[in-house]
């Protein structure tokens, strides 16, 4: 029988050991239904998730709710929205109780005297042209001014098909403001015209992502295997999609058979009662979904499947390390 020790040398075994006991249990929270932008193809607004539940306004109720989440075993709160920084009191309620990650468009600066170690992921949808077209304005000059040199922030760069051949420029822009970068892909069905991945384009962007990681290993938080999985939708001979997705809200998951999934995962709406189907929009087509976190988690929950060769296990370790770095469980 293949075991971890039989496949790894000492150095890799040490790396494995530093993540194997982390036992990350995440859930996602819509902090608010409001946003200071209206991006085209934002899954939250395009699928009317902002109308799915009435936002809870009583801060005390948030605090009680978060305490309950902690009791339930959640040890990573991923805050999304809307734009969480519009409601910093709620962000603080999470931050003071749980390891917390905050996704933001970066237009409002999280005050570091109040949130010294809050991990912030700043969304960026491409270059100036794409940003203007998709989000109505280029957010980079503002977000980079707000977070320049911040050691607890990184850019979450959503690559669109129009970015092929242009990613290096973006990586350099981000490097120049002293920040790190994680790459993900725009999903096909986000309702934005002309932003549709073809098979060929996915092949090209995979090579480009590999290239960026090769050239800028200190800036890019990624792994080649993640690039492979997210661009091909394949892990071994398995195809990503509804039948395999690990990021489905557990209490309402009626799939049979149930695939490997994130234990206890829930995506909560901002009324603190409604549960969304998964980490992204319910209207998204699972067969073309390119959600980065779901693909990463897909690899992570399938550890045993990767204990079959040295390379497979190393691939698994690299993806897990990437996730652990992005959410501050291990240092960059």
């Amino acid at each position: 029988m293949k075991t971890v020790s039989s496949l790894l040398d000492e150095e890799w075994h040490k790396r494995y050991k530093s993540i194997s006991k982390l036992n990350i249990r995440s859930s996602i929270y819509d902090v608010t239904n409001r946003c200071n932008l209206r991006c085209k193809g934002c899954f939250f607004f395009s699928s009317d998730e902002d109308k799915a539940a009435k936002e809870e306004m009583d801060l005390q109720k948030w605090e009680v709710f978060i305490d309950r989440e902690k009791e339930r075993g959640v040890n990573l709160a991923i805050l999304i929205g809307g734009e969480p920084t519009i409601c910093l009191d709620r962000v603080e309620a999470f931050y003071s109780r749980l390891p917390t990650f905050c996704a933001t468009n970066g237009l409002i600066k999280v005050p570091r005297d109040r949130f010294p170690h809050l991990m912030v992921g700043i969304s960026l949808w491409g270059d100036e042209e794409d940003e203007k077209l998709l989000r109505g304005k280029d957010t980079f000059p503002i977000s980079s001014r707000n977070y320049e040199g911040d050691s607890h922030a990184y850019y979450l760069y959503t690559i669109t098909p129009k970015q092929i051949g242009k990613t290096e420029r973006i990586v350099n822009r981000i490097r120049d403001v002293g920040l790190k970068i994680h790459m993900q892909l725009l999903s096909n069905d986000e309702g934005v015209e002309e932003f549709f991945w073809t098979h060929e384009e996915l092949k090209d962007i995979r090579a480009e992502m590999d290239d960026m990681l090769d050239k800028y290993p200190d800036v890019v938080i990624s792994s080649n295997y993640y690039h492979e999985v997210i661009t091909t939708g394949k892990m071994f001979d398995r195809q990503f999609g509804w039948g395999e997705c690990p990021s489905v809200t557990e209490p309402i998951d009626r799939r049979d058979p149930r695939p490997k999934h994130l234990m206890g995962f829930i995506r909560w709406a901002s009324d603190l009662k409604t549960m969304h189907r998964c980490c992204t929009s319910e209207t998204r087509d699972c067969s073309t979904c390119k959600d980065g976190a779901a693909h990463m988690s897909w690899v992570m929950v399938n550890k045993r499947a990767h204990i079959r060769s040295e390379q497979d296990l190393k691939n698994w370790i690299e993806v897990y390390e990437m996730f652990a770095k992005l959410y501050q469980f291990i240092p960059w």
């Binding site: 971890v4 194997s20 234990m263 550890k303 499947a305 204990i307």
Partner: peptide, 9 residues
């Protein structure tokens, strides 16, 4: 857990 990769599922 550590060596064979068995998880809670």
């Amino acid at each position: 857990v550590d060596e064979v990769g068995i998880d809670s599922m």
